[in-house]
Design a binder for these strands. Structure first.
Lengths: 226, 226
DNA sequence: ACCTGAACACCGTTCAAGT
DNA sequence: ACCTGAACACCGTTCAAGT
């Protein structure tokens, strides 16, 4: 919409906040989170480290912006008419894919999420579906919590294992699981996700039968003895 | 069993690896993970920073040992005869409590777990229960994965929110959720855990009906259209 | 066996000053 | 509006040398 005259006349190029986030995401994917320092990022941009602090409050806020970029595809154009459990599986798979799309993506997102610096990726979508279908918003939140924390934690573990494997293979060590790495193995992700979705489906059906218990209040019952 | 003559004669006290881990756990609880540096830890022990590297390989391995200490209570003396879903709930509650027992406990454990430097806290117990009951070990692993990643991720988020709240309250800000903090609120933990346990129970019953499908292979079916 | 002293190669962040 | 230069207060880790 706005004409791009940001470099009219050939003056030294100036950066926007968006450029800094772009460069950070690019550098993350190249060198990984442990080597993503503000000083390396400044180098990458051809700028002094202190210049970054004009565009960004601090490193944590920058990583939050990077997290939001990584999570972008999770909330893009959804098909209408899904049930809560179907939407939950869809969101989970998109989240998993998005985290795997960048090096150390799950670790970056995990901490931004814990610090509350980025929007939780599943809640808005599942709340919308619940509203459409007349399900309790509290149930949507419960499912969103279960999905989000499981997927992020699992993918974090999976991503570390893969880069460790890749390092071992590159160093000429015992390339034990090299095929699994290059094939993008499942590692049990789908099985555990199926289990959680089964829980969502069961809970959904139970509430449809007895809608008076649909408040979302936790039960905290001691499990029944066999 | 062995007599403690480690300081016989009043020489300068010498430290063991266990002492270093003890001190790290203590310092973690006092100052939090961001301020737990090797240099502060050395100070805390009355020793030069370089001395730590005689007892411990590096900081990550030290944090892994701290994680193992935090997770100790999760695998202590279990009652026999539980079903897989009941044992899963028990392990989840123990894990949650253990992580909350130390400042930033969930964050420390989360990264040690992702790096594969500490034993996953739920798997051994659930595998043992599965063996007792004739359930597939793959199912025990699936439930253990779902529980572990959910509980660690949720508690990480919960712990950050609580310390942010406590900081806001201490700084005299709007002490909005101070009662929830001091009361140790649930934040939806139990509701989401109930959902996952419901998934475990459902899967368990389904497999008991059709034991030929008990291999633990993921389904990856596209969800049925309504 | 356990620790000191000194060094190496880094960090994130602030802030006056420049253009 | 955007960036430089210089500084502050730190890091994790290594390694020869001491006792």
């Amino acid at each position: 919409m706005i004409a791009d005259d940001s470099n009219r006349g050939g003056r030294a190029p100036r950066r926007s906040r968006g450029d800094v986030v772009d460069a950070a995401l690019d550098l993350l994917d190249r060198v990984g989170l442990p080597d993503l320092s503000m000083r390396r990022l400044a180098d990458h941009l051809g700028v002094q480290p202190s210049a970054l602090y004009w565009h960004v409050e601090n490193k944590q806020q920058l990583l939050a912006a990077v997290s939001a970029r990584i999570l972008g595809p999770v909330s893009a154009d959804h098909a209408a008419g899904a049930t809560l459990d179907v939407a939950a599986r869809d969101v989970a798979v998109r989240l998993h894919d998005s985290l795997l799309a960048y090096r150390d993506g799950a670790e970056v997102v995990s901490s931004s999420l814990a610090l509350g610096l980025v929007d939780p990726p599943a809640h808005a979508r599942l709340r919308a579906v619940a509203a459409e279908r007349g399900d309790a918003p509290a149930l949507a939140d419960t499912i969103a919590d279960a999905i989000t924390h499981f997927v992020v934690g699992f993918t974090f573990h999976q991503q570390q294992r893969r880069s460790a494997d890749a390092w071992g293979a590159a160093a000429g060590g015992v390339a034990a699981s090299v095929e699994r790495v290059s094939a993008g193995g499942d590692d049990g992700f789908t099985a555990a996700l199926d289990l959680i979705i089964a829980g969502a489906t069961t809970t959904l059906l139970r509430r449809a039968d007895a809608p008076d218990a649909a408040s979302g209040a936790p039960t905290r019952h001691p499990a029944p003895r066999p």
